[in-house]
Design a protein around this nucleic acid. Structure first.
Lengths: 183, 183
DNA sequence: AAACATAGTTTCGACTCGATACATTATTTA
DNA sequence: TAAATAATGTATCGAGTCGAAACTATGTTT
C-alpha cells in the first residue's frame, strides 16, 4: 500500500515537472526556479527571504542564491534590504512574476485533471494529503511551513491579529499566507 | 482547491527527493538514477528498456542513456540484448540493485508518515491519487503506465494470460507488473 | 570586546538535462 | 527487391543544478 501511494505521488510529480519544463522554456525558467517563484508568491513577509526559500525547497543556500539571481535578472522578483536587520533581504515578486505564476501554476493539464474529479473527492484528497504532509514533516524533524491562522505564534486580539513571536500586528492578508515560523 | 492540492503534492515530492538524495549519497546515486532503478524493479519484460524508462521519467533518451550507464557501472543493472529485435536492450536489475531499492524505496520517513495514518485513509487516498493520475495522463495525451491485469491487450484464456498485443503468454508475475503498452 | 550565530554571495567540481548527430536494426513503401 | 522511413540506443556538447566550502556582513551572546 505505501509502495503504491509512493509510486503514484512520484509519478504525479514527474508529470507536473515535465509540464513545468515545457511551460517555463519560453521564459528560460527551470522547474526549480518556478518552484521558488511560486513559493514567494504564496508566502508572507516572514518568509520572503532566500533562507526561507532554501528551507522550503530543501536545497542549500548557495544553490538557491543562484536561482534567485536568475529570477531577479529576468525581472520576476526584486530584492529589498530589511530596514531593521540589515543581513536580511526580502524578495518581492513583481507584477511580471505574478503574471507568470498565475498562468503556469498549477499546470494546465493538472488543473484539468483535478477539475474532472467530483468536488467531494477533491476535498477528501486534499485533507488526506495535508495529513500525510504533516506526518511527513514531523517524521523528518523538519519545521513545517504553514499558514498563520493555525500558528501557535498567532494570537488574535479582538478583530486584529498579532504575531506572538514578534509581536508585530498582522494584516488579514499575512494571516492567510504561508509562514516559515509556523509551529 | 486545485492550488492547494498542487502545493501539497509538490511539497511531498520535494521531501521524498531530499530523502532520496541523502539515502543515495552513500552509493553516489542521484535521485533520478534511483527513480530509474525503482521503475526497472517494478516493470515487466515489455518495459525493461531504455526507451520505456525514458517515457516513464519524461526525459530524453540521451539523458536516460547516461543515467543507465551509471547504474550499469555500479553493478545495479545489467544490459541484455533482445534476441528477436536486435535494436532493443533489456535492463535487468541485479540482486545488488534490488537490495538497494528495497532498502530505500519508499523512503523511510515517508513510510513512517503513511503508517501513522488509519488504514482506511491510506486506502481512500490511494484510490483518489490513482484517479487523479489517470485523469492527468489522459489530459496529457500520454500513454499510461499500468499493470497488465487492466490492459486492453491482456486477454485471459482459461487460467492463463496472453498479451493480445503480442500474443505472447504472460506469467502471473508479468500480469502484475507495470507495463509500457498499457492501454 | 571577543566569540559565536545568522543571512547571504561566490566559486568550484560533479552531475543533469535537452539538442543534435550518429550507428544499427526493423518496417514500410515504391 | 531496393530505397525510404522509423525505432532503439549511444556519444558529445553547452547550459544549468547541486552541494561544499570559503567568504563578507551584520546581529547576538558571553
Amino acid at each position: 500500500m505505501k509502495e503504491n501511494i509512493f509510486n503514484v505521488i512520484e509519478r504525479l510529480a514527474n508529470l507536473t515537472r515535465q509540464e513545468a519544463r515545457v511551460a517555463g522554456s519560453a521564459e528560460g525558467l527551470q522547474p526549480v526556479q518556478q518552484e521558488a517563484l511560486h513559493f514567494l508568491s504564496i508566502c508572507n513577509k516572514y518568509s520572503d527571504t532566500p533562507i526561507a526559500v532554501t528551507e522550503y525547497l530543501g536545497l542549500t543556500k548557495g544553490t538557491v542564491s543562484q536561482s534567485l539571481k536568475v529570477l531577479e535578472s529576468k525581472g520576476l522578483i526584486e530584492k529589498v534590504k530589511d530596514e531593521v536587520d540589515k543581513r536580511i533581504t526580502h524578495l518581492k515578486v513583481t507584477s511580471t512574476g505574478l503574471a507568470f505564476i498565475a498562468s503556469t501554476s498549477p499546470p494546465e493539464k493538472f488543473t484539468q485533471a483535478i477539475s474532472e474529479m467530483p468536488e467531494q473527492d477533491q476535498q477528501t484528497m486534499l485533507t488526506l494529503l495535508k495529513s500525510t504532509l504533516r506526518h511527513y514533516q514531523l517524521a523528518s524533524g523538519r519545521k513545517g511551513f504553514g499558514v498563520c491562522k493555525q500558528c501557535k505564534f498567532n494570537q488574535s486580539v479582538k478583530d486584529n491579529f498579532v504575531c506572538g513571536l514578534t509581536e508585530e500586528p498582522l494584516s488579514i492578508k499575512d494571516v492567510e499566507l504561508i509562514c516559515r515560523e509556523y509551529a
